[in-house]
Structures are given as structure tokens and as C-alpha cells.
Simulated assay, not measured.
Amino acid sequence: MLEDLVVWYLFIGGAGAGLLFSAAVLESLSPHAVDRTRAARSNRYVPKEAYARFFGPAYGVGIAAVALGMLCLLLDLGRSDRALALFLQPTPSFITVGAFALVILMLIAAVLFAVWMLGALSLPKAAACAVRVCCMVAAAVVMVYTGLFLSSMSSVPLWASPWLPVLFVASALSAGLALLVCVIVLTGSGDEFTTTLRRIQKADAVIIVCELAVLALFVASAVFGGDTARLSAERLIQGDLASVFWGCVVVLGLAAPLVLEAVNRAMNPYAVIATGGLVLAGGYFLRWCVAEAGMAPDIVASVMGVLGIQ
């Protein structure tokens, strides 16, 4: 069974990567280098200092989340030599790719964090664009590799699904956007970027709808995926995990944020933070449910197979 620290890593690392990916995309789309005169005529000019208050904390929290996720993974390994072996003696595996992607992501994001928090806004446009693209690529790798790693475990039928990586990416993006919105509101930048916040919430609503659809496909594929996968799906739908799955994942983590984002047109900060908190909680319990439902039936099936009992 996956340890709690691994589940926390899957959640926090994914949310941090989702935040950094979203921040890099937003920075690429933001007109912070727009001509002052033309922007002033349209009353849409936002000073660079405001963008620094927006992107600086966003990148900082994203780096902290990814670092905390790595710490959970290292604590779960329990031995420093095992962690060092991933880098000193790399092998072609999802774990190795993920470990390097995590380190690269933090290093790249640290550059963007320094640019905004230390006031180094004179970075050449081409270099800044290249750094942002690298940040997006590294964050995408971090978001997708955990799902690919778990889905490659054919011994766990629930996880051996092509929908699992898609589900984890959608969840990571949603959690990243939720974390980003909370950071913006809590740091006081929300008043200057109300329109941006609305667009982020609209994007998150679309992602949540996609996540609901992928989750349904993931569970349906397990129901028709053989006896062991069906047992895992039944634990989620009507078994011992049903209350957490339906209550914490589907209702509180997906449906409730979708409703709150639809009705909170005035961008009330308390409602924004509450919505973000629900999305983040749902992201954690999604991974917990997937981990719990996948492992227990597989262990039973493996023991039965060894004993020759079918």
C-alpha cells in the first residue's frame, strides 16, 4: 500500500507543478511590457510593481509546494543513499525522470521568482520567454509522470488505465489554479487583477468539468476491466471508500467548487479562498482514494494467485 507520505507527495508536488505551469502561462500572456502611453489611453495599464506582487508570491509558493512534495518523497524513502542513487546512478525509469524533472522545475522557477521578487526586471525578453517555456515543460512532466508511473504497474489493475495520467494532470492543474487564486487573494493582489481572477476561475471551471468526465471514464474502465479492477471500483462506488469518494472528492472537491465559481461573480475573497480550499482538499482525497482502492484488492488477488486459488 502506498504510504501517506507518498500520497502527500503526489498531491503537493502535483499542485505545486500546476501552480508553476499556470503562473508561467499567465506571465507569457500578461501585457506587463506593454507601451505605457498606449495602455494609459485605454486605462488598462498596470505597473510592473503590481505584476511583481502577483507573480513573485505565485512562483514562491509553487517552489515551496514542489520542495515540500520532494521532502515527503525523501522521507518515505527513508535513506539518503537511495535518493542520491536516483541522480548519481540514474536508470531509464519514470521515477528517475520525475526526480530530475522536480529538481529542474525548482531551479527554473527559482529564476523566475528571483526576477520578480528581487526586481531583476531587465531580463532580456528572449531569455525570459525561454525560461517560461522551460518552466511549463518541466511542470508538465512533473504533473504527468506520476500518473504514467502508476499506470505502468500492470500488477495493480485499477492503476493500469490510460485515464489515470489524464486524471492526475487535470487534478494537478485545477489544484494549481486554486492555489494560485488563494495566493493572489491572500497577498492582496486580487483588487488589481479582478479580471484575471475571473478568467482563472472560468478556466478552472472548465478543467473541473473535464476532470469529472475523466474520473467517470476512469471508474467505468475499472468496472469493465476485470475482476480485480472491478473490486477496486466497487470500493469507490459503494464500498468502504464510497463516503470519502462521493463526499470529499465528487461533492466537496468537484461539484461544490464548480457551483461556487459560477455564483461568485463579485469575486468575494472569502468565497474565493473557500473554493480554492475545497479544490485542494478534493485533490488530496482523489489521490488517497485511488491509492487505497488500487492496492488492497490487488494484494488479496496476488495472495490468492500464489496459493492457486482463483
Rank of each mutant, 00 (worst) to 15 (best):
T37Q: 12
P92L: 09
W163F: 15
A160L: 03
V46D: 05
G282A: 09
C182P: 00
Y270A: 15
S151V: 07
S155H: 12
E261D: 11
V272W: 02
S243K: 14
A213L: 15
I95H: 06
T37I: 09
L150S: 01
L29S: 12
P297E: 06
L26H: 00
A99E: 08
W116H: 14
S174K: 00
D204H: 05
D81P: 00
L286H: 02
D81C: 01
V251L: 15
L2K: 07
A222T: 13
E49F: 07
S154M: 07
I108G: 05
A175Q: 07
T187K: 08
F193M: 08
L212S: 12
R44N: 08
A205I: 00
A242S: 15
A120H: 13
M70G: 15
F285M: 05
L217D: 04
A58Y: 06
S42W: 04
A23S: 09
Y59I: 03
L286Q: 11
W163Y: 15
L217M: 13
I108H: 02
S122V: 10
V181F: 00
W159D: 10
D191A: 13
P257Q: 09
A274R: 12
G56W: 02
L286A: 07
S243H: 12
A110S: 15
A39G: 10
L212Q: 06
A296D: 05
V183E: 10
A23F: 00
G176S: 07
Y45D: 08
L280G: 09
D191F: 06
F11N: 08
A256E: 04
V259G: 04
V251P: 04
L88H: 10
L241Y: 13
S171K: 03
G176C: 06
Q89M: 06
L20W: 08
R79I: 09
A17C: 09
A130Y: 00
G283T: 00
V206N: 02
A127F: 08
V279L: 03
M153Q: 11
I95T: 11
L20D: 02
A39H: 06
L260G: 08
I299V: 11
W288G: 04
F55S: 08
A170G: 14
G147W: 07
V185K: 04
V244I: 15
L86A: 15
L123I: 12
P31V: 03
A15G: 04
D240V: 10
T96A: 13
Q310M: 13
I309P: 00
A64L: 14
A64G: 10
L75S: 13
T196Q: 05
M106K: 00
R38L: 14
S122C: 02
V263P: 12
V144N: 12
A67E: 04
C134W: 10
I207V: 15
G190Q: 05
G239F: 05
A52H: 01
L217E: 06
T37Y: 13
E234M: 15
L5T: 11
L197G: 01
V290M: 05
P90Y: 03
A109V: 01
V259Y: 13
